[in-house]
Design a protein around this nucleic acid. Sequence first.
DNA 1: TTTAATCCTGAGTAAATTACTCGGCTTTCA
DNA 2: TGAAAGCCGAGTAATTTACTCAGGATTAAA
Lengths: 143, 143
Amino acid sequence: MKISAKGEYGLRAMAILALEYHTGPVPLREIAKREEISHQFLEQIFISLRHAGLINSVRGAKGGYTLAKAPAKIKVGDIIRVLEGPIAPVDCVAKNAEAACSRSTFCLTKGIWQRLRDSMTEVLDDITLADVIKKSDSEPGGK
Amino acid sequence: MKISAKGEYGLRAMAILALEYHTGPVPLREIAKREEISHQFLEQIFISLRHAGLINSVRGAKGGYTLAKAPAKIKVGDIIRVLEGPIAPVDCVAKNAEAACSRSTFCLTKGIWQRLRDSMTEVLDDITLADVIKKSDSEPGGK
DNA sequence: TTTAATCCTGAGTAAATTACTCGGCTTTCA
DNA sequence: TGAAAGCCGAGTAATTTACTCAGGATTAAA
């Protein structure tokens, strides 16, 4: 039940971009240094995030990355879904639900995983990057 | 963010034991067949569950396994913790919390993982095996 | 116009984890 | 006594993770 380094690093890096949202593009190398993450690994993570439309890049000298939208418009769940795949403790309850298993009609445990998925989704989609940089306890405004 | 086969199989097997709670020990081979799980793999899982005190075993012919407590006394969270380790999306927010990371005082993301951990724990500790075998949607009595 | 900074990308890889299997011992009922 | 069951340590193939490597493309500034 752990998230991987990819999701953890990616979220931390996105928080930095949120902090620097009004100060122009931040080079990846700077983020990597600040967060003590391998910059080559972070590069791969950023490519995924860019392909997903969560960040923009500026190439060349003085280049770097910026959030594609305001921090308040980016949910933690958006980031996690890009880097970790669908939020679901087992494949058979993923929202796209390819993996309809043959025992699903009588499976006693499916309901558990659905409830768990829903509560995880609720938390992750309730927190935006604006919340993340606001206070240390990441409590969103509406709570 | 997936649980492993160990946790998934273990929970399904425990649900069977809950169904058969009043009919004497159930042999592992029968559960394995019913749930289409490798019986040798399930054996390992059951050893963990027994060491954790969640099930009892009866050796010899006509032997098998039984729940160590009534289904209503066993929480899904108890089972998951035995088979998957502490419920925590990252090590640094595990309840025993060995892994206090050096950046924890200023980490922007720690609060997210704490909230996620709490909501996962709440769901898993709110559902007992009695709930699991009661209805298909696993809703506990109090909801 | 060169140079340095930066992003972009595919390929490779060591280590760890997962999901098992193997083999053999021990206990108990009939 | 023999079959049915649990007990358990060791091994292993496949997969995933967490990276590294090597080099190309783009742009600002000197």
